[in-house]
Design a protein around this nucleic acid. Sequence first.
RNA 1: GGAGACUUGUCCGAGUGGUUGAAGGAGCACGCCUGGAAAGUGUGUAUACGGGAAACUGUAUCAAGGGUUCGAAUCCCUUAGUCUCCGCCA
Length: 423
Amino acid sequence: MLQINFIRQNIDLVKERLSVKNFGDLSLVDKVVDLDEKVRKLKAESETLQAQMNAASKEIGMLMGKGDKDAAEKKKQEVAQEKISIQQLSEQLAAAEKTLHDEIVKLPNLPHISVPKGKTPEENVVVREGGKKPTLPATAVPHWDLIKKYDLVDFETGAKITGSGFPLYKGKGAKLQRALIQYFLDYNTAAGYTEYLPPLMVNEATAYGTGQLPDKEGQMYHVTEDGFYLIPTAEVPVTNIYRDEIVKETDLPIKMTAYTPCFRREAGSFGKDVRGLNRVHQFDKVEIIQLVNPDNNSYDVLENMVNHVEKLLNFLELPYRILKLCGGDMGFTSALTYDFEVYSAAQERWLEVSSVSNFENFQTNRMKIRFKDATGKTQLLHSLNGSSLALPRIVACLLENNQTESSIELPKVLHTYFGSSKI
RNA sequence: GGAGACUUGUCCGAGUGGUUGAAGGAGCACGCCUGGAAAGUGUGUAUACGGGAAACUGUAUCAAGGGUUCGAAUCCCUUAGUCUCCGCCA
């Protein structure tokens, strides 16, 4: 959520930045400013009346204390009149505040100054590429065939148990998941991230905090009986750990990592993109999250996280590229996003495996995650997060890119974790 | 799932309708004391929003929401959470 004070003081800048994100309705900015003015006016009126009433009530209390019942009764009558107008005014105020809030949450985060203009994914900018695309044997096949050949994932039985898009990992396929999760977590904790294992279902307030509600409601599985949502990413429960908290400046930065399954309805998606492990309803992911002091440049932290994920891909010996997303392709809450894609050699296409973003204070404003600075002032933190990494597409690439006639050769870092150098 | 107890500031803990944003203590910060420290001692120590150049000031907040009342931390209702016992269960 953007800060209303900031909008009020930077109307033109806000509009200009929103246009980079191709935000359609710039008049919403004016609307929000008008609503804010209305709220403030009503608030001033209402509080003045309230102050009068509080003073009168105190007087009555004092009169009662002195035993002057008649005077107290008289005062009561007077106050009773005022009470009605206070009620009316506070109803108006509450309605105005709700309207303001409903409108302001529709405004997406402002993109960072360096975000390229653009509407479609084609306009994302390739920052750099790394790794080497392999030369595959003539007999090379996509991962969904390799999965069958080595009996790693049973999609059909997964569909029988739950539905399509719920893979059942099996044997070495299951073990590879475990090995990757373990490796990613070890790699992250070695870099100073604290490991968490959060609840996989969250309540409404939590889903709202990271911005999944209200606009991405359809993306999440909803347990209506209890009002819970299955998490679409560890970002949701983990960032909310600090919701409504004021932390000490000396505790910063807060670095957290978590492995969780992720659940996504992906309503309406189908076709060749969703074959095999390319897009599923349940998948495993390890996430990294940082809450940092906004006075230190949080974009340095973003670069740092990008380098962290990039090194991981180097260790996995996968060919990758890093994209800086254009305004139109960025998420609602993000100020700057880098996507990581790995090259799936048999499918001959790039697959997104990580998305690293700086949200500045957009999420923390919603969640009221703050710290006390040196002067004793409370300030919002900046939040950042990224995947390190999402497993299914990594697995797809590991399988495809490392296939030989009779085996799949795993990168060295996984040998100990997997207990073997090949499948 | 059933029965009961409870939920106050950073923490502990008073407080059953009236100058209570909230006693007291601990912690923390600053000062005094000290050669230095401990002890002692003094002062200060929530958040949000609004007004004001500032000093300061108004409103709200005692789990959350609603109600009764001129007035609620205190009374009533609803919800959530914690604990204890029973049931069930990995």
